[in-house]
Design a protein around this nucleic acid. Structure first.
Lengths: 194, 194
DNA sequence: TAACCCATGTAACCTGTTACATGATTAA
DNA sequence: TTAATCATGTAACAGGTTACATGGGTTA
């Protein structure tokens, strides 16, 4: 589990409020981690109690006050230690694959529709990532150390969306082609039996 | 959430015991869903109580008795209904990406090591999937309807492993190349300052 | 004889989601 | 005036992990 680590990682560069973090985990950083605001507030309290982050109250006019959280040296040390520890790869766990696994009990059209929707969702995500890449990472070799690593996580997001899109295309082609083959073979059989 | 649906999907073709399901979710089917045996037993009890599956006690000699679960028509109906409902794409959520996002606070060698380990884990998975593809899905167009869909989920696993491997390679190259550029530029600067 | 496979489960705990709650400011 | 944004939280519930428990059969 990496939610506390993901929060610590997000706080290295600059302090954030819980609200900011929730937005980040729902936006551009959301391709490698996501969390609801409730989860984040709960985790921030815990991390503060453990001395891994500190809070600073910021009074604002015209807006509600907020708490800016910063990582402590203890927090940074534990994050460094965690990074060095061995990690297992995570399984995919996507609903669509469960639906596809049982796809033969549903109308072919329904499955093709699901694949199409999925394709479009991934294309939208890919376009978002590519826009970020162009705006903030157009010259990767000249980036700061911190940004080089953020660039690589963005590249991972891009690679994943591309893989999903490739697969969706492949699956749709396979299902329509083998369907038409099936219909073609039926047609041939009909001709032969006449 | 799709654990109950994943279980129902696994039971369409033939009945399984909880033990069997736990092994399946940990093996070849594990690329699109996984679950511990405790989770599965808990879920099976719930599904049985809801009338979506039925249990049959099987007495064995030389082995502990087991319960074989089969999907009911109600279970199949609810699965069909669920398939037609809209689905959101899942975020990646992999620890390695969190580690990489904070990669600049760790020694470069540590990060490269993590990438290498990750690469090897994905290669091992890919090889496993490719072996299954050769053994059971060598002639995709001739497969039964049910197996066509299982083939497609396997293809998704293959595509994902390939994407991870591509990205790992890309990331390792980027980190070693920009590091040597950095060292080269240092070297040039040293020469100039002399 | 030690470790692993088969087979099922309970209990405690942690993580993640949904619903509820407040309240000012700003844009359509 | 309706909805969205900023900003923080609580409570209840559902999902997932870890530890514990049993016990015969098989393989090294």
């Amino acid at each position: 589990m990496a939610l506390p680590h993901a929060i610590l990682a997000a706080l290295i560069e600059c302090p954030f409020s819980g609200y900011d973090l929730a937005k980040r985990f729902d936006g551009s950083v959301g391709f490698f981690w996501n969390a609801s605001h409730q989860q984040i507030y709960r985790e921030l309290s815990k991390l503060e109690a453990e001395g891994l982050i500190t809070a600073e109250k910021v009074e604002q006019d015209g807006r509600p006050n907020k708490k800016l959280y910063s990582i402590t040296s203890a927090g940074k040390a534990m994050l460094q230690e965690w990074i060095a520890q061995p990690a297992e790869v995570s399984p995919v766990k996507d609903d669509l694959l469960v639906k596809l696994f049982a796809g033969h009990i549903a109308p072919r059209e329904t499955i093709l529709q699901k694949l199409k929707e999925h394709y479009q969702q991934h294309r939208a995500k890919l376009e978002g990532y590519q826009a970020i890449a162009q705006q903030h990472f157009s010259d990767p070799a000249q980036l700061s150390e911190a940004h080089k690593f953020q660039f690589l996580t963005l590249r991972a997001g891009i690679r994943h969306e591309m893989a999903w899109m490739t697969w969706c295309g492949e699956a749709m082609t396979f299902l329509t082609e083998t369907e038409s083959n099936y219909q073609a073979s039926l047609y041939v059989r009909d001709e032969l039996s006449e």
